[in-house]
Write a protein that binds this DNA or RNA. Structure first.
Lengths: 212, 212
DNA sequence: TAGATTGTTAATCGATTAACAATC
DNA sequence: TAGATTGTTAATCGATTAACAATC
């Protein structure tokens, strides 16, 4: 039985493997080796082998892994096969973009509805999904058993919204707001932090220009 | 003189410090200590102290750092004070959301224009920014000296767009597409990868339910 | 058998944590 | 002086890399 506990770094690489395997569909054969994945993604092959060992039951020496089987195992391990319902708070531009994104089911995420405090947005639809008033948040979450909340409100409202989500039974928060969120033990905050990305980009350019 | 070279992990924490300092404006005093930052963000205080030591010239024992000075130093170190021009390719929902986001100047990013291959979008405006046809990409980038390219096209077109960007002189790519990008030596790809975030969220929920 | 690939064990590397000295 | 905070040096921890044995 594969190891259930992988390092956070490994967990971040697994989606890239899956993505590669999904996209290499047509021209690929029945089998795929860790070496091939490593080469395609520009990663050390031992890393890939070690990561796959904790996800897949068995790779066969000389042959590699059965491609479709490995895809299944990765999907299962990453939870993409077991779709989770989510709700989104903040139906502004970014919120609407996420509500409209059709790729989430592929990653096991289904956004049920959006919420917003702006009366002008309430009861409109975005990509077939209703925008509801904040008052209906706790009721819906509890009734349907939603555990994932997506925050796309301005930074200054993020903590307040986060508290409401947790009161409504949310266990994992996907935070697009540029704010640090304080949460009780056992609640996960996953920050999609653009400021961090920009810092890394900026740093690269700085180094690039200072050395050349 | 502060150390120019910090670990990637440290670089990812610095924006959070800056954000905290910027937002704690009103009620805060003139000075701020590493301990206070650590407590507010739920990080080990020695980590914060070490990070700040490589960014700031001097903290004073017993007193801490001059808040405004530290903000300046962080902004400078992260390159947020030196605004970089960028262009965006793919003016769909997500692209439009990014074009409309007014917070980027705060992080030293200025999106000049969007590009799209869809004639229906070309020559429209989003948040006061023109959407231009792909043919104009190399000319604009070279003329203005743009070094940052943002990719918000569907995954299957990402590599092609990435190649075009690099041909146009782009040195750093901010990739929102769900695709692995192959780039030559010296070009940075910063992935804003939703699949990774979703994997971490899903993994948290799985662990949470398997242990309780 | 020979060769390619997996998977494991040991060695290296880097980051975090702990302990402590320096300083206002 | 006493206490709080900085900043540095050493110890621990974890992840990556390297070497090698196992296997089809």
């Amino acid at each position: 039985m594969p190891d259930r506990c992988v390092s956070k770094q490994a967990l971040q690489r697994l989606p890239a493997y899956l993505n590669f395997l999904r996209n290499s569909g047509e021209q690929a054969g029945k089998y795929v080796s860790a070496t091939a994945i490593a080469e395609a993604l520009g990663i050390n092959d031992v890393v890939v082998r070690k990561d796959l060992a904790s996800v897949s039951s068995r790779g066969r020496p000389k042959v590699g892994y059965v491609r479709l089987e490995l895809i299944r195992e990765l999907e299962c391990f990453l939870g993409y096969d077991n779709t989770q319902d989510a709700i989104l708070v903040g139906a502004g531009k970014l919120g609407q973009a996420l509500l409209s994104y059709s790729g989430f089911p592929q990653y096991g995420l289904n956004i049920l509805a959006g919420f917003d405090s702006d009366p002008a947005l309430v009861e409109t639809e975005v990509a077939g999904k209703r925008i509801l008033p904040m008052e209906k948040l706790p009721g819906l979450c509890r009734r349907v058993g939603v555990h994932i909340g997506i925050i796309t409100v301005p930074g200054e409202h993020a903590q307040k919204v986060c508290d409401q989500l947790i009161d409504s039974g949310i266990l994992a928060v996907w935070n697009f707001a540029n704010a640090h969120l304080n949460v009780p033990e056992g609640i996960l905050v996953q920050n999609e932090n653009m400021a961090v990305s920009l810092a890394l980009l900026s740093n690269h350019l700085k180094e690039r220009f200072s050395t050349k």
